[in-house]
Design a protein around this nucleic acid. Structure first.
Lengths: 196, 196
DNA sequence: TAGATTGTTAATCGATTAACAATC
DNA sequence: TAGATTGTTAATCGATTAACAATC
């Protein structure tokens, strides 16, 4: 709506666009504050800004990527990051031979420079794109140097102290979920209720 | 438990391990069938097999990856796939110059060979790892040749006809969620209830 | 038989939604 | 003022869980 230059919208329109109930939409928005006007609706630009602020889109976040294999490369090149305020401040890899290698205009540094990087830049989020076997070690080191939010792509569960947030992206699970639905499409059992 | 050679377990033990309520665990398992024994518990191997079968872990799934950039490479090399029954039957890329290039012992084929691949192998799931701009075109073609389950890594929403399943992995969203929590850690508002 | 534990019913809890007073 | 639409209350719905009959 912002892109289309629409100035104002009702909870009904927003709900239709999002595919949810309008009462729920109003209730959810009310948790953020009272950003609408009775009888009028919501000002698109204002509401949009308030939501962006609430979810942290209005500030810049510094990330460090550890493990610059294929996945690390893909992450470093991912266009969706910078547009949402994520700035990669360092690419680290344990492999000494890769030190200095250029990735999208950024030079790969040795993993043991992590502490120096944190001193240099403030790091909000650490991204682990190493093989599973190295992931816990990398994670421990990240926690030691003060990183409290970690995104883990390695297919392993990380142990972290309280106060540290870990999210895991498990590529195989995503396939697994599709496979589950595929299986049901192929042979919907007699006692299974189908839903689109 | 299977790995540890434990033969039998109770719903209470399973619930503790999973971090859920035991009544809920029993109720959920009861949707699969009646695989426990009153007064005894569940036979680990038998239950494990039944769950694996239910979620489609006991069969092989054929996948095709389209877009063999860094992410496509990473997916082709991902060890977590084969261990869960996912077999990559083809790697496709629109770039002619990459045709024949070897990736983990598999040769890259041209995207317009998709139909031939489907005829050759049966394809259960198509994976899109192309730039956003090409994703919808690739998706349309996949649907045309009969693929009904699609995993999309491109940062774009795909339009598909009913009956086709799409899952999107949005790497930026994952960072966004961490950033949201990070923001709350840094400045928990006065009216915000914290939970670990 | 006595003890244990499932599968399921009924009670509880929380989330969703209809309805409406407040108010632009 | 009349019409519209928010923010919120109260009603509804569904999911979770306590409790227990069934049964090993």
């Amino acid at each position: 709506m912002l892109d289309e230059g629409i100035a104002t919208c009702s909870s009904l329109e927003l709900a239709a666009a999002a595919g949810v109930n309008s009462a729920k939409l109003r209730k959810d928005l009310s948790y953020l504050g009272s950003y609408g006007t009775r009888g009028v609706g919501y000002e698109v630009e204002y509401l949009s800004y308030q939501i962006a602020r609430e979810i942290g889109l209005t500030q810049d976040w510094h990330i460090v990527i550890v493990g610059i294999g294929n996945l690390g490369h893909a992450l470093a090149n991912y266009s969706g990051f910078s547009s949402r305020g994520f700035r990669t401040v360092a690419l680290l890899d344990a492999d000494e031979s890769r030190q200095g290698e250029d990735v999208t205009g950024m030079s790969i540094r040795r993993f043991d420079e992590l502490e120096a990087v944190v001193a240099e830049y403030r790091v909000d989020i650490g991204v682990i794109a190493t093989p599973a076997i190295s992931a816990q070690g990398v994670c421990d080191r990240m926690v030691e140097v003060g990183i409290r939010s970690i995104l883990n792509f390695a297919p392993t569960i990380l142990n972290v102290p309280q106060g540290v947030d870990v999210r895991r992206v498990d590529l195989a699970s995503e396939l697994q979920i599709l496979a589950f639905h595929e299986q049901r499409k192929a042979a919907p059992g007699p006692d299974i209720e189908e839903s689109a």
